[in-house]
């Protein structure tokens, strides 16, 4: 073996040595994708991780406690009188912190004409959210200790003049959520309970608070889900809401959902949602479809 060949092989043999060292071999990349399937939840209408309508204590992304996870989503809701489209991104850090952004676009269609906004006037809102896992784990540890997370959702309605016109006190607001989520493996059942401090009218799309009622109120979000397989979950959710505006009644929301992980990285969620009365148009029940990609 001549000198130059030896020199050129030296780094290779060094690299092989490093690879064969156990400690080096098991170091996964920062985006480790090691979270158990579906335990990152699916993206909610507010861009946080949860069950679609209710926010859970889960952390977005497929990272474990040593990595970073990423996710992106698109959600469509088709209602009798409205169309909803939202999309956003989220980062999960060490399965401890979730940072998310979502843009909500609410198409008022013919209602826009009735409200004098113009046909197809779209209400838009940005939601910037952060969630911190305080204790517990959805799957592991004490079977009776749920994963508990504290969240903050700062919502900025981009149509504040419209919100004020319907009687809202503010064009932006901040929700605080406290969630507890546990997968009871012995029954394949996941249960979530969330308390939300909020002033939001229709999640903020009709602004926040009103002249008569401008206090944060505690609202409740509950979810029960059954795991059919490693990839499939069905469930139901209920979400109570404030009723601040004088001109239009606001109803609680509920939904029935099915989520399926087509691959380890792509999850689709379909749901039947009942969003009640929105801006005097009653019985807004329809279909919800969401796609989430996560690493």
């Amino acid at each position: 073996m001549d000198q130059s060949l030896f020199r050129s092989l030296a780094p290779v043999s060094l690299a092989l040595f490093c690879i064969s060292t156990p400690a080096a071999a098991q170091e996964a990349s920062l985006v480790d994708g090691g979270k158990l399937l579906l335990t990152n939840g699916v993206t909610t209408i507010e861009g946080t991780s949860g069950g679609g309508v209710a926010t859970w204590s889960t952390i977005a992304g497929r990272e474990t406690d040593r990595g970073i996870g990423l996710s992106g989503h698109v959600t469509l809701i088709e209602l009798p009188d409205y169309g909803w489209q939202s999309h956003g991104v989220a980062v999960g850090i060490a399965n401890r912190i979730e940072l998310s952004y979502a843009r909500q676009n609410f198409d008022t269609r013919d209602v826009g004409t009735a409200l004098g906004l113009g046909r197809g006037y779209t209400l838009n809102q940005d939601v910037f959210a952060a969630k911190l896992r305080l204790a517990g784990d959805v799957v592991y540890g004490d079977p009776l200790l749920p994963q508990i997370s504290l969240g903050v959702e700062h919502k900025r309605n981009r149509d504040a003049p419209v919100a004020r016109a319907v009687g809202a006190a503010h064009g932006s607001g901040t929700d605080v959520t406290l969630s507890a989520t546990k997968l009871f493996l012995s029954h394949s059942v996941l249960v979530n309970a969330t308390a939300r401090l909020t002033k939001a009218n229709q999640a903020g799309l009709l602004g926040f608070g009103s002249a008569g009622d401008d206090q944060h109120q505690v609202q409740f979000e509950g979810s029960v889900a059954y795991q059919l397989s490693r990839r499939a979950v069905i469930g139901a959710e209920y979400r109570t809401k404030p009723d601040n505006l004088a001109i239009a009644r606001e109803d609680d929301w509920w939904d029935l959902f099915a989520a399926y992980a087509l691959t380890d990285n792509l999850t689709v969620t379909a749901a039947y949602v009942d969003l009640g009365s929105i801006a005097t148009f009653d019985n807004q029940r329809g279909g919800f479809l969401s796609a989430q990609i996560a690493f």
Partner: peptide, 30 residues
């Protein structure tokens, strides 16, 4: 945690191959 998760996945694969029902798999994992 990522190692534990990987082991769980391998156990799940082994249980699937033996045609253990999913509810029973989860009961065992509990």
């Amino acid at each position: 945690m990522r190692d534990m998760n990987a082991l769980v996945e391998n156990l799940q694969a082994a249980m699937r191959e033996e045609k253990v029902g999913f509810a029973a798999q989860n009961r065992f994992l509990s």
